[in-house]
């Protein structure tokens, strides 16, 4: 069945269409939620809520993105809400991690002697956990944008749609998230950790 047929089926309350959609998209939705939340049980809750949302809102689906992309957006939103609940509200901690410039607008950046490749960096299991810990230090609103754009490879417009942001906003958050993560990962990239 094509996306169009499935959506028509969902709108008409067809059981077969519902089951097909759930079975087709659940694995990746679970993967998205697990990566964001780092917890399988929470991820399953999230996916369940996301599908409940989908059945409720299928009438509003405009077909601007594929059904899958729309669903990954819904599940990311559910996960974001959970992450926000977990994180205490505080001053934007990402500001200290932004790139630095002197008063004549020149960048301040220590020289890189050797920049390891991702493969070299991640060749040890412990390093991978370290990197994931660093990613988890990013504020949820930035992390979710980084993940949808750079990991799930959604387009700026798709992420904007999913998270109810403007394209400009998505770009700003993505750049800030990458910049902050670069600061956090510096010791790892420099081979010091």
């Amino acid at each position: 069945m094509t996306d169009e047929e499935l959506i028509e089926g969902l709108k008409a309350g067809d059981d077969q269409a519902a089951e097909t959609v759930v079975r087709t998209h659940m694995p990746r939705m679970l993967a998205v939620a697990r990566r964001l939340l780092g917890d399988s049980a929470l991820a399953e809750d999230c996916v369940q809520e996301a599908f409940a949302n989908m059945f409720r809102k299928i009438g509003d689906f405009e077909g601007r993105s594929s059904l899958g992309t729309w669903l990954y957006g819904i599940v990311a939103n559910q996960a974001l809400m959970k992450l926000r609940q977990q994180t205490r509200r505080r001053e934007d901690p990402i500001d200290d991690l932004m790139p630095e410039f002197d008063t004549s607008a020149c960048r301040i950046e220590a020289p890189w002697q050797h920049l390891s490749t991702p493969e070299e960096i991640l060749d040890r299991e412990k390093r991978k956990d370290l990197v994931i810990d660093m990613i988890n230090k990013l504020p949820p609103d930035y992390r979710v944008v980084l993940q949808l754009r750079d990991i799930e490879e959604m387009s700026t417009a798709e992420v904007a749609d999913a998270l109810n942001l403007t394209d400009g906003n998505v770009k700003v958050r993505l750049h800030r998230a990458r910049s902050a993560l670069k600061s956090l990962l510096e010791p790892v990239l420099r081979g010091e950790l």
Partner: peptide
């Protein structure tokens, strides 16, 4: 490099 490491 950061983007590559995060993705991987």
């Amino acid at each position: 490099a950061t983007m590559g490491v995060a993705k991987r």
